[in-house]
């Protein structure tokens, strides 16, 4: 892949998804774009990029951008975060009233984070009353998430064996999430650069290991959009080791990456 082609793809990804692709990611990008080139019956990734350059095909462009986004995820990533949600945050929210607890998994990739949220919520609440919305830029990642089918290796990264037995069924040499888990999540193709308020308000907004890849201005604007859908006294969750801080309305908690909103702060506009 030529530096010029990589720069072209990187600019598309920056514009459309707010994500930065570094100059040393040539091999990664070429590997991700290869299947799209083959599907389009093109000889090479270079031909694919030439086609997008010459046609500005919006669908193909979106597929290319989606393919370059890192979809690295696992069940119970940042274990301490989910322990806090299960032991403290969700029971506290549940004690307020009888309304369903709404959770947003923003940038859910192939679904492991959203299913982990569903598992901890279902195990925290009896009877379960949760509404999880999981969104991602990539239609392909969402397709996999919605089926709930994971490989032998995927279910063994982070998922305790008792959770596997309780929430999954064996499906040949794969494992499939049980219906109650799947039914607790609604999946949607959504760009984090767009307004999130049509999704409603949430008690817990999880955007974990996503914004670190964003360019700073896009990350800051996205944090404001996430704030706009976080309820007063709601929680915002990032990766435990991410250097991402939410707007001033949020105060840190003893668990790294978990922040709580104070209703004393005015909300920012969700525009943009």
């Amino acid at each position: 892949m030529t530096p010029n082609d990589l720069a072209f793809v990187a600019e598309l990804t920056r514009q459309q998804a707010g994500v930065i692709i570094r100059a040393d990611k040539s091999f990664f990008v070429e590997t991700r774009l290869g299947p799209i080139a083959r599907r389009e019956a093109l000889e090479s990734v270079a031909e694919l990029i030439d086609r997008v350059r010459s046609t500005n095909d919006a669908t193909l462009t979106r597929q290319i951008v989606a393919a370059t986004l890192v979809q690295d995820t696992s069940f119970f990533r940042d274990r301490a975060t989910f322990a806090r949600l299960q032991e403290s945050v969700i029971p506290t929210l549940a004690s307020r009233d009888k309304a369903p607890i709404r959770l947003l998994s923003a940038g859910c990739a192939t679904g492991q984070e959203a299913y982990t949220l569903a598992m901890v919520a279902l195990e925290s609440l009896a009877p379960p009353r949760i509404d999880i919305v999981a969104i991602d830029f990539s239609a392909q990642a969402l397709m996999k998430a919605e089926t709930g089918v994971y490989s032998h290796f995927e279910v063994q990264r982070g998922l305790p064996i008792r959770s596997l037995l309780r929430h999954f069924e064996q499906a040949d040499d794969h494992w499939k999430t049980r219906p109650d888990l799947r039914q607790s999540i609604r999946w949607g193709e959504h760009n984090l650069l767009d307004d999130l308020t049509p999704l409603g308000e949430f008690d817990i907004v999880v955007c974990s290991h996503v914004l670190s890849a964003f360019e700073p201005a896009a990350a800051a604007a996205t944090l404001d959009r996430l704030d706009a859908v976080c309820r007063d006294d709601g929680f915002m969750v990032f990766g435990a080791n991410e250097s991402v801080s939410p707007p001033a309305a949020f105060a840190s908690t003893p668990t790294p990456g978990v922040w709580r909103r104070s209703s004393a702060f005015p909300r920012v506009s969700s525009a943009g």
Binding site: R79, F153, Q156, R157, I161
Partner: peptide
């Protein structure tokens, strides 16, 4: 069979084949 092993005192269970990430994940669990 996995549940049988857990009932007899296993704390965790790794299905073969495995890799370093899986062992690390299970040890963390």
């Amino acid at each position: 069979r996995i549940q049988f092993a857990l009932d007899r005192g296993a704390a965790e269970y790794i299905m073969k084949p495995f890799d370093g990430d899986i062992i690390a994940s299970k040890f963390e669990a």
